[in-house]
């Protein structure tokens, strides 16, 4: 009896010694290892048996947890490794092959494949795939419409997608079809509109924060655009720099890019920022 008790105590003691380095090791495991490798979808489908939807959901959750963890670290100002977008995309693509109805996968892929990775074509292909299944969902054509108009500058396709989104939602989404959005000059407003819709429907804190930042940046850009127009009306010419707008009293307070970049006017008067509306943009610019 005493022997069993002491061996149990020794084991518990060893467990106590082991558990801290063990959890530290797991916490610091390389991200790629954490995200893991997805075996071929065909193999996964076979092994998942009748749990395909659950396996798909768990793949999405894995990506979400991974991304959420990184965002948390960046907020705590820890050293941040850039997210492994390729692995994230691979997992989400695998997820929709298993469950083509999984909205979280499309939604999250749209969130990072466009602004961060600039893979607009891949994003739209994924959305088109989703539209075949989620025939009732207005979000997918809404996303595809935005990608087409804002990133790809394919206004005809964008109009088609927005039309579909408007029909499905039955709301005033069709106002996005307004001509001014479908041209270069309406891009900032289009982005503000899109980001407002996205942010209002978002409950994931990491993503909401992302949208909030981007929305603030675009609202600042819109303020500059409006000041630029007033300047042109008053002075009869385009301003050359943002500073001109600030010093001339057209823009107060001075614009602030939440991504840490600086706003500037391009030769044709278009408002841009050195951050390109992403933290990564600032780093690249500084390099």
């Amino acid at each position: 009896m005493r022997g069993t008790l002491s061996s149990a105590l020794v084991c518990i003691l060893l467990y106590g010694i082991l558990i801290i380095p063990f959890t530290t090791y797991l916490r610091n495991k390389p991200f790629l290892e954490k995200l893991g490798y997805v075996p071929s979808v065909t193999a996964l489908k076979s092994v998942a048996a009748d749990h395909k939807e659950m396996v798909a959901a768990s793949l999405v959750m894995k990506v979400l947890m991974y991304f959420g963890g990184l965002s948390e670290k960046s907020q705590e100002s820890q050293v941040v490794i850039p997210p492994d977008y390729k692995a994230m995309s691979r997992l989400l693509h695998g997820a929709v092959k298993l469950d083509p109805y999984n909205m979280d996968a499309y939604y999250f892929a749209q969130a990072f494949l466009t602004w961060d990775v600039k893979q607009y074509k891949i994003a739209n292909d994924l959305l088109i795939y989703g539209m075949k299944y989620r025939t009732w969902d207005w979000y997918l054509p809404f996303f595809a419409g935005f990608n087409s108009a804002f990133f790809l500058k394919e206004y005809e396709a964008a109009a088609r997608y927005y039309q579909r989104a408007g029909e499905l939602s039955g709301s005033d989404l069709s106002r996005l079809l307004a001509g001014r959005y479908m041209q270069e000059s309406g891009q900032t407003e289009l982005a503000i509109n899109y980001l407002s819709v996205m942010m209002n429907g978002e409950k994931n804190p990491a993503l909401k924060k992302n949208y909030q930042l981007r929305l603030t940046a675009f609202r600042e850009a819109r303020r500059i655009e409006l000041a630029r127009e007033r300047y042109r009306e008053v002075k009869g010419a385009m301003p050359a720099t943002v500073e001109q707008l600030v010093s001339g009293g057209f823009l107060s307070p001075p614009p602030m890019d939440p991504y840490g970049g600086e706003f500037y006017l391009e030769a044709d008067g278009k408002v841009s920022t050195t951050s390109k509306y992403a933290f990564a943009g600032v780093k690249n610019h500084k390099k």
Binding site: H51, E53, A57, M103, D104, Y139, N204
Partner: peptide
């Protein structure tokens, strides 16, 4: 509740998978 856009759908997925298992 961790799901972004389909909390009820995820509840259903997990419940049905659990029953099945």
């Amino acid at each position: 509740s961790l799901s972004m856009r389909q909390v009820t759908e995820l509840s259903l997925t997990l419940s049905l998978s659990m029953i099945s298992f």
